[in-house]
């Protein structure tokens, strides 16, 4: 009880501080705000710099992706770490590793909790459609990831779609069957591999004495003519890292939340 009061108080105070800080923001779309107009006599406008120079710097037509994955690479890297942390938190809170002191299952009837496909006509319809749809969704998700710097999309969106395809399989068939293909050790490992891909691409420029996440230095590694194309290619690599992490954490969240951390039975 005491812990609950303390937690509620800290949440309320933090929320109040955040809400108070919102009032200091410039208006949405205000052309006179410092990011849009720059500081008079001081720094020039960041927005204008991005809009005018993104294509020259990175050869990426989608300015949003370029700002997200290149100019503000630190921010996106730690956003991905936030997602990983959320996944680890759910694992730490919900996952029941010992079976004997597990709380009661949501539905104790095994025939209903871990339903089988055969003998149930409507599950054949739903299961078959989902098995046809899941690869199509995954292909489209890969397209969204790979096309992120030319059209709307990118690692987060593609990763969410990849994760959703696994959730669809678990919902339409059974979670147990999906877990044999994408097991817990697999998805937790892949969640970290995504971060390693991102941070590793960021560390490589330090090898040749450049800054962390300064992808321009990778033009030798990617065998591109100029630094611009190296930055473009690195953005793709970074997006792949983000997508891997987001996909794994999405599925981890679904598996843990739908079974109360037991990874058996479920919806």
């Amino acid at each position: 009880m005491k812990a609950k009061i303390f937690a509620s108080l800290s949440v309320l105070i933090t929320g109040a501080i955040l809400l108070y800080a919102v009032t200091d923001f410039p208006d949405f779309g205000d052309p006179g705000s410092p990011p849009n107009a720059g500081v008079p006599g001081g720094a020039p406008s960041a927005s204008r710099y991005y809009l005018e120079n993104t294509y020259r710097d990175t050869k990426v037509p989608n300015v949003v992706t370029a700002v997200l994955a290149d100019y503000r690479g630190y921010d996106t890297m730690f956003e991905t770490v936030v997602i990983l942390t959320a996944g680890i938190a759910i694992f730490a809170i919900l996952r029941v590793l010992r079976r004997d002191d597990a709380p009661a299952a949501p539905d104790p009837d095994p025939a209903r909790t871990d339903h089988t496909i055969d003998g149930d006509h409507h599950r054949i319809i739903v299961g078959t459609t989902c098995r046809i749809a899941a690869p199509l969704i995954q292909i489209f998700a890969l397209y969204v990831v790979a096309h992120g710097h030319y059209s709307p999309g990118g690692g987060f969106q593609g990763g969410v779609m990849l994760g959703a395809s696994f959730i669809l399989l678990a919902l339409s068939g059974s979670l147990r069957e999906t877990l044999t293909r994408f097991s817990e050790s697999d998805y937790m490992r892949m969640a970290f591999i995504g971060i390693v891909i991102y941070a590793g691409l960021g560390l490589l420029p330090m090898w040749v004495g450049r800054n962390f996440l300064d992808y321009g230095a990778l033009s030798g590694l990617f065998m591109t003519k100029g630094e611009e194309m190296a930055r473009s290619h690195s953005m793709l690599g970074v997006e792949i890292g983000v997508a891997v992490t987001v996909m794994s954490i999405m599925f981890a969240m679904f598996a843990n939340l739908s079974t109360r951390g037991r990874l058996r039975g479920g919806l």
Binding site: H122, I125, V126, T129, C130, I132, A133, L136
Partner: peptide
């Protein structure tokens, strides 16, 4: 093609 596959399936699942 995608709507042709998924829309009847969701109707069937809901009715069931």
């Amino acid at each position: 093609v995608f709507i042709y596959l998924t829309s009847p399936t969701s109707t069937s699942a809901l009715a069931d």
